[in-house]
């Protein structure tokens, strides 16, 4: 809802301020086609590291893209990409990718013992906001289940270094996990998420 109003405002501004070459807006499919060379068919990445973006919620998608664009969220390359699209174009792509199925049929090198331990840790520290083992997209917290493990690890590195901001509540849980379980705890979590089908 909030996003819709925001978009409306921007369109109006575009008309008023629209300077040089005003390009018409491409379709959702046309725009999303430019992403799949890096994110895979329908946003399902073939790995080993680039994240699958199929099935993530519109809310989460919009927040991610806006934060890449403004530089609030760190990235190797997404900041440079996100700066190429308008709010309206983000909305179109959000609607496209949120309708795609997140494919968990990945071949990751899973250590079953670590995954088992990770399942327990997830329940204790993370399930509250990343429901259904991190499968749910409805909590607008991204999808962790079946995501590529190196991506999850890079992301946690950014969270822990303070480069990517956590919500206060997640920070508390993450820090407790770190204190109680150490780096190994995170690794066990990645094996758990990586093992989920």
């Amino acid at each position: 809802m909030k996003n819709k109003i925001f978009t409306g405002l921007l369109i109006t501004c575009g008309v008023v301020l629209g300077g040089a070459a005003a390009a018409a807006t491409p379709s959702a499919t046309m725009l999303s086609n430019t992403c799949v060379g890096c994110h895979g068919p329908n946003g399902n990445s073939m790995g080993p590291a680039s994240p699958t973006i199929a099935g993530i919620s519109t809310e989460y998608f919009m927040e991610a893209m806006e934060e890449y664009k403004s530089g609030v969220r760190p990235s190797t390359i997404m900041g440079r990409i996100a700066k190429g699209y308008s709010e309206e174009e983000f909305q179109l792509m959000a609607s496209y990718f949120s309708k795609q199925q997140f494919n968990r049929d990945k071949d990751q090198n899973i250590n079953a013992k670590m995954a088992k331990k990770g399942a327990k840790l997830h329940k204790k520290y993370c399930e509250k906001c990343h429901e259904d083992g991190g499968r749910s997209s409805e909590d607008d917290a991204g999808i962790l289940a079946g995501q590529w493990m190196p991506y999850l690890q890079f992301t946690m590195t950014d969270y822990l270094s303070g480069n990517r901001e956590m919500t206060k509540k997640m920070k508390k849980k993450v820090n407790t996990l770190k204190d109680e379980q150490g780096d190994k705890g995170f690794e066990e979590l990645w094996h758990y998420y990586g093992s989920l089908k």
Partner: peptide, 21 residues
């Protein structure tokens, strides 16, 4: 170095995704 190391893994991901495409 850590960020540029990520770029190698992302380059390999790019390769897998674009060839699939």
């Amino acid at each position: 170095m850590e960020m540029r190391q990520r770029e190698v893994l992302y380059a390999h991901s790019w390769f897998k995704n674009i060839t699939k495409d």
